[in-house]
Every structure is written in structure tokens, then in C-alpha cells.
Design a protein around this nucleic acid. Sequence first.
RNA 1: GGGCGCGUAGCCUAGCUUGGAUAGGGCAUCGGCCUUCUAAGCCGAGGAUCGGGGGUUCGAAUCCCUCCGCGCCCGCCA
Length: 544
Amino acid sequence: MLELKAEAARLLSDATGKPVSPESLGPAPKPEMGFFASRVAFELGGNPAEKAKEVAGKIKSPLFTAKAIGPYVNFFPSEDYSKQLVEKILSEKNNYGKGKQAESVMVEYSEPNTHKAFHIGHLRNTALGIALSNILEHAGHKVIRVNYINDLGLHVAKTLWALQKFHAGEEPPENKGKWLGEIYAEASKKLRENPEGDKEVRELLQKMDSGDAEAIKLMNETREWSLDEFKKIYEELGADFDKWYYESDIKGETKEIVKELIGKGVAKVDDGAVIVDNSPAGVNLLQRSDGTTLYSTSDLALAKHKFGDYDPDRSVYVVGSEQKFHFQMLFETLKKWGFRQGEKCFHLAYELVVLKSGKMKSREGEVILYEDFSKEAKERALKEVQEKNPDLEDKEGVARAVGIGAIKYSMLKVSNTKTIVFDWEKSLSFEGETAPYIQYANVRCHSILDKAGKKGKPGVVGAPELVYELSRFDEVVAEAAKEYSPHVLALYAYSLADAFSGFYTKQQVIGSKDEAALLALVGAASVVLENTLRLLGIEAPRRM
RNA sequence: GGGCGCGUAGCCUAGCUUGGAUAGGGCAUCGGCCUUCUAAGCCGAGGAUCGGGGGUUCGAAUCCCUCCGCGCCCGCCA
């Protein structure tokens, strides 16, 4: 589609003498009215309908024909477009729709804290990060995926305090990471009820800071529990990282960085604390008046490492929107510090996942844990699979694909500026605008292809809605990458599946007179459905 | 006080960057469709003061102003 639009924009510019951009070409109300349309006739003065006719008359291209419909100039792909498109899809397969962007882009995402619960908020983050990375890659970029783990600080001390005080000698349950999250909530509760514990927590924190052997040993051991849990979750979610950064590895450098920034005149001492004055936007606090550094300082150290290790052209941070101010300050400071990437940092800010009762609070234990959510999703999916397809092999595997797909998609389909109010039933629905609907469309493709038992041959076919959706995949990927908006691709996946479902019910493939061409079309549909799901990080089972 | 985001049918949501074709979807409700490739599906019906008001424009969900409601943020939390 990008190719068609580029050509159309060029010809429209020539025909009207006005610059017409490919982006200005919007969709027609339906594919039967053309694959896209220009509104340029409105800008030419005089009667738009007559102008549209005039302009359309001047457009000649082997790729499409232009036709005025009212004041619009609509573009209809050439007679054999469907054949060429299907050929292209079938030959390019996984690479179909691949873009020509060529920067290296670092994407930092997920970022859970050790010793705390991994909840559905982290799921939104992780699902976004996976999809965004894949989309950027398909747009042509080289993508470096990194995770940053906060394994230091007060939350760790609190958890270890409660672990020693209330659970000494206990045999940890199987999921030790989850257990730590529960103990963290317990610690917070106990400390609220009984503030004297604060002193002991601070002592422990002090020990951890000063390198007390026993404290460090406990810290490291329990840290692994959380990391083991995260790794299991990442395996299930298909999250991949080229590099894991840990706060414990970089915290030691923060004081040096503060000194360096003061030396360079970027930071200054103010009220005993160290700040970077980013007026008028605000102030970036780097060091408390007691000499300790903050997480914002660690983020500077982290950036130095990331840029040093990979020298990316751009750096994307997938982090909740409540940290917008923090990232604005971080990016300003990085620029002043002299990193070329400072200009090319982007905070992909997404709104939170909240409960009907309000914000989730790890401290209160008021969270939906990823583990519980995913377990419920897989169980419901398994029940569904058993009901609908009792003879299916590997029901567990299919149930996992369907269940995990459903919960990821429920997070991916909404724009990141929207708060998600968590609802079990909605996020675990398998009907309508959901991952299973999309997966099911692909399963139907395979069902036809398997049954036919032979390869199709690309040919001219009807099915304008399906051909339209297949053709605009490249455009959608480019758009999603440009805007850092995975939901654009998620919604496209639904449109494509919807178009296929419509085709499927209307058009018998096997035994029809156009069988070969239709089989090829179905094969192409499956390729694009699978590409889309793959980029979203959702599995595409062949049967379900 | 300042800044950011959100407000579209009973519920959820797309569209807002770049103003234009009857404001798209989904859930729920009601009515149809399995002797042809999997009904996790398809077709149809009802349901929308696009938060309120004002403005710009031939034309506003979209741009500007203003007000209201909700959420988040604004140097010693992360």
C-alpha cells in the first residue's frame, strides 16, 4: 500500500501543482470504493466535484486507476493487483511488509523490582515492550532489548526484615519469587501497625549498604528467587532481552557522576542537595542533602552504560505515565551531559492498570498477580479447547497460546493513553475483539490449506476487503513504529481477521472454480495473520 | 497554584497528529444462520446531546477559547 500511495501522491502533485503527501491519502469508506482517496479537490477552489473529475482524468498509472467520486479522487488498484499482492506475500513470507528504517533503537521495558510482586501492571508494560520492539524491528530498525532491574533499596530491606523476623527457618514454597512479594506486603503492613520495626529495617539497609557479608548473602540469595520467577514469566510471555542491567551494579557509580556533573557545571548544590536546574520545566534532584543518591541518579548511570555498551541512535523507555516528569528531567540532563542520544530519547508512557477499587498497591498486597491472572487464563482456555475440540492434540499448548494471547491482547488493543480498569471477564473473553478471534481466523486458513492438500496459484480474485487489509500491512507497521503505538497493529490484526472471517463465510474455497487462486489468497492471509500475531508477541496455533 | 492525560450508546473502545464521504468496532440485548473448508464464527435490529458552552470554517469528535468531572505529576519516594 505504501508503494501505491507514494505513486498516487506523486501523480496528484503533478496533476494539481500542489504538494500532496502520501499521508494525506485517507481510506475510502469501503474497499469497493477504492483503496484510498484524496481530498485535494477541496483545496483547488471552484467546485470540488468538478475539480476532482478534472484531477482524476489526469492520473494515469499501471498501478491503479483514479476515479472521482463526488469531491474525492478515489484510487482503485489495477485489475491484477490481487494476484501480484498474493505473489509478493507468498514469496516474502515473514519479511512481507518489512520497512526500510535503519537506525539502532534501544528499547528498555518490563523493569520489575526484585522482592516485589510481578503484577498485571508489569504485564501491560512487558506486552507493550515486546510488541514495540518487534514492530520497530519489522520497520527495519536494529533493536536492542534491555531490562533494568531494581534490586536495591528500601523495598528489599523491608522484605528481608520480615523474612527474617516472621519466617525464619520456614521452608519456602515452590514459587519463591511470589512468596517474596507477599512478604513485602506483609512487611509494609507490619511496619504500619508497628513503626518500631522501622529502626530494624534501617539497620538492615545500613548493613546491605556497607557490605555486611550476611546481609549481602541473604540479599543475593533472595534476589535470585525473584529473578527466577521473572525468567519463567518472560519465557511464557516470549519476552527477550539482549541485556539485563541491575541497579546493584550501577548504584556505586552515582556519586562519581554527581561529582562529574557538578564539575561540568551541569549540576549544582542547592540547599545541601544536588540538582540540575532544567528551568522552566523543573528541577532534577540527583542527591539528597544527606549525601545519598536517588533513582534519578541511577537512571543517569544506567544511560551512560546503555549508550556506552551499544551506542544506539535512539533510546525508548517503556515506563508508566506517572514518571513523565522524571523522564523529561532525565532527558534534559542527558543532553546537558553531552550524550547525542539525549535528543533521541523517548518515554513511551502508558497509563496504569487499576482495579475497580482504585490503584493497585504492592505494599498493601492489593494487586492482581501475573501468576494468578495467567493461570486463570490458561485454565479457561483449556476448558474451552476441551469443549470445542476434544480430539485436539496438545490441548495444554493450545490453551496456553490462547489464554496468554487473550490477556496480552486485552492490554495491547487499547491506546497507551488510556487507563485500563481491570476486569476479569473482559480480559479473559475469547470472543469478539480478542486474540482468540484472530488466532481462530488463522486456524481456519490452515484448515482449508490442510484439507486442500495442495498449493494454490496466485491469480486475480475478488474479496476486496481481504485484499485491502492484506495490502495495508506495511503501512500499519510503519505507522505503529513511527508513533510507538502497538495498539495500531493490534487493531489492524482484528480488522484483518474480520475481513478473513467475512471472506470465509461468503466464499467456498475448496472445489470452487477459482480454487487455485483462492487457496493462494488463503495462504497469503495466513502469512499476514501470523506476521501480525508474531509482531504482537502472540502465538498462532495451527489448530484450536 | 502550575503541568500532563482522559471524558465518544448500558459497559469497553477506534478515530483527534494531517478538519471533509451515513462517527467505525467489540461486549451486553433482541432476531436469524451449522447435510459444504472448525459456529472461538457469520448476517440483521435497536442503542451516540462525540463532557457543557462559545468561536474559527463552505464543513468540527478532530483546530482555538472557556468551564466541568476523573486520574497522574510538580527537589530530598521509585
